[in-house]
Design a protein around this nucleic acid. Sequence first.
DNA 1: ACCTGAACACCGTTCAAGT
DNA 2: ACCTGAACACCGTTCAAGT
Lengths: 228, 228
Amino acid sequence: MKPGPRRSLTESDVLAAATALLAERGAGGVSVRGIAARLGVVPNAVYTYFPDRAAVLAALVDDVLGRVDRDAFADPARPWRERLVALALALRAELLADPGVVRLMGGSPPVGAHALAVQETMLSLLQDAGLGPDDAARAAYLLTVHVLGSVALEAAELTDPGAPPPEEERVAARARVFAAVPAQRYPRTAAVAPTMARYITTEQYRWGLDRVLDGIAQLGAAPPGPGA
Amino acid sequence: MKPGPRRSLTESDVLAAATALLAERGAGGVSVRGIAARLGVVPNAVYTYFPDRAAVLAALVDDVLGRVDRDAFADPARPWRERLVALALALRAELLADPGVVRLMGGSPPVGAHALAVQETMLSLLQDAGLGPDDAARAAYLLTVHVLGSVALEAAELTDPGAPPPEEERVAARARVFAAVPAQRYPRTAAVAPTMARYITTEQYRWGLDRVLDGIAQLGAAPPGPGA
DNA sequence: ACCTGAACACCGTTCAAGT
DNA sequence: ACCTGAACACCGTTCAAGT
């Protein structure tokens, strides 16, 4: 093939190729050369569309964030708390559908167009809950941190590329790890091993979410008493 | 140099070299070849001590976790809540001292010896707070997730190797990013831009911690009312 | 057991050139 | 502007061999 302008590629093609590589080979498999090969193009052709590999990865992450259907949480008739839970569940589902993205999130802060749209949705929901702008922002921080932290904890165990195995299977694998913890050195950990094995479940995620939302619900109310 | 057993290296030497590379070149700079070169040894010599690069990185992360002085939180005379805050602050400080580690944490679950010791300390503190074993485990989950999520959010912005710049500087950089957010498309985000710029501060971290601990303090108490 | 030597199959990125 | 060709300076990992 000869050089020269052909417009055979678009930014979106590059992202599609990157997404395919992520699914097939995992986070480490998303290489500039791999993307180029998949597009039938020479490696450095990718640099026409993105300045470097990090930019491709950042766009890839934002792309995944764009897959959550934000309109689904817009209905002001539904209770705000229910809508926040639904949003948080949708975010987790999308990020864990291909857990490789989670590892890529560490590469750049979530300030892409879709990341901002998610923040905007959160702020909107929290203001529906009666919070002032700044309280809403701090509550959004709390929620973002919880989603990010949970998902990071879960994804750290999913080293194989592609969609994760069913929850029961992942819990069982984690249970085997904690069953092997020496009870002599870590007595308390060993005693709650079955509970710790379930850290990665949707149930635990929802439970944590509920505690966070309890805290948020108190924001407008009287200050909490001293910790008992 | 000739081959043959020389015991010139230890597992700990490998980790020290990895730590130095992390500080000098950042997370991506911790390479097997780089470690070997620093130790004056041929690249594959490293494989005598670790099965692969991932194992080196996992050990490196656990090593950093081992730097928090856990005895500092053992004093049962101090209120449990104060001790938990101190533990969470120490963990954050250690992880952000060289933010590259945070990116490496995504590679494997925190089940090393020092990670387990931290969990054990958390469980101990939470049981001092009067929680039963399973409630303590769930509370530890909440705390772990908050620490992980906050630190991930902060570290994502620290792409340069070595110790991060002072907080004021990082807030200013983040403020510039959010000041550029188009108010037309993201009105609520733009309205709270200064607050969002401060997500990465110790103050915000402590605030979030307090909300989480409020939730934990309620665990033994009556169930919370419906979200207002 | 612990190291070397050499090789395999990869990387990201740059620079000059062609259309 | 958009692509090729060729090169530079890297990777992780394996295998056979030496002591």
